[in-house]
């Protein structure tokens, strides 16, 4: 009798463990935690983008970026001189590019690239992953979680992502970006975890390569990423020529 009770209790505890594991492995919750570890919701940061060609030739761009809320973001080019003053604004699915000489913002799309190379506008104006993607599945491996993410709408640049998350730090290590057709568009690799202060410890380098552009690489280096609040009016078209004044 006692043996049977033990068996039932054991099965119950096993079921409870399974349920607990399932709860612990809620993909969308994990995605939220990944986002929270990557950046505050409102922040400013500097990024250097480096395009590297197969022959080793490099071209660098430096951007100042501010973000507030879930989907308001501005990126301003501060170098090189040929790009200085260009600013891109994102409000949800809407994106605009302001070029000082042109003097007015024009609508752009997420898959265009304002700098050339493998990074496109959606990489430069990336929102939190959980804002644009739903976790469809999650698998646990020895040191990582593997997340399968599906875009919430067709306006998102990549139809689905395969994200590898480090179990200890809950930071992404590799993300593969796929088109609707299932074609791999690019792979993103995070590295060089760094303490940005205020408890923010996250990768400071993002490297990308693409099977569509063999031999080409692009890097994004992050610096001075810190929490900061901005008025919503900063994220408007008429403010684009004035973004530099926020620095």
């Amino acid at each position: 009798m006692l043996h049977i009770i033990h068996k039932i209790t054991g099965s119950f505890l096993f079921l409870l463990f399974l349920t607990g594991t399932a709860l612990a492995l809620d993909g969308n919750e994990l995605l939220r935690q990944v986002d929270a570890r990557m950046q505050p919701q409102s922040y400013e940061m500097y990024r250097k983008l480096i395009n590297i060609e197969p022959d080793g030739k490099k071209k660098e761009f430096v951007l100042y970026t501010v973000k507030t809320g879930q989907d308001k973001m501005v990126a301003l080019f501060i170098s090189p001189a040929s790009e200085e003053g260009r600013a891109t604004l994102r409000l949800g699915d809407n994106m605009w590019l302001y070029i000082p000489n042109v003097g007015k913002p024009i609508r752009i799309t997420s898959l265009q690239s304002v700098i050339g190379g493998i990074f496109n506008n959606s990489d430069i104006l990336r929102l939190d992953y959980h804002v644009e993607y739903d976790a469809e599945s999650i698998t646990e491996q020895e040191t990582t979680y593997q997340l399968e993410l599906k875009a919430k709408s067709s306006s998102v640049a990549y139809d689905h992502l395969k994200m590898e998350v480090d179990k200890k730090t809950l930071l992404p290590t590799t993300i593969e970006c796929y088109a609707v057709s299932g074609m791999l568009i690019k792979s993103l690799h995070y590295s060089k975890t760094q303490d940005f202060g205020d408890g923010l410890i996250r990768p400071s380098v993002l490297e990308t390569d693409s099977p569509l552009h063999k031999g080409y690489r692009s890097l994004m280096l992050f610096a001075k990423l810190q929490k900061k609040e901005f008025a919503d009016e900063v994220f408007t078209l008429n403010f684009l020529p004035k973004v530099n004044e926020l620095r």
Binding site: V62, I78, A81, L219, A223, K224, N244
Partner: peptide, 24 residues
């Protein structure tokens, strides 16, 4: 590898100056 690739992000590059001059 980092040093070999010369990927650095010098904070002087992002220092803001009150007077800015550019053009072509």
């Amino acid at each position: 590898l980092w040093a070999q690739d010369e990927f650095s992000f010098d904070l002087e590059e992002i220092e803001k100056k009150a007077l800015q001059v550019g053009g072509y």
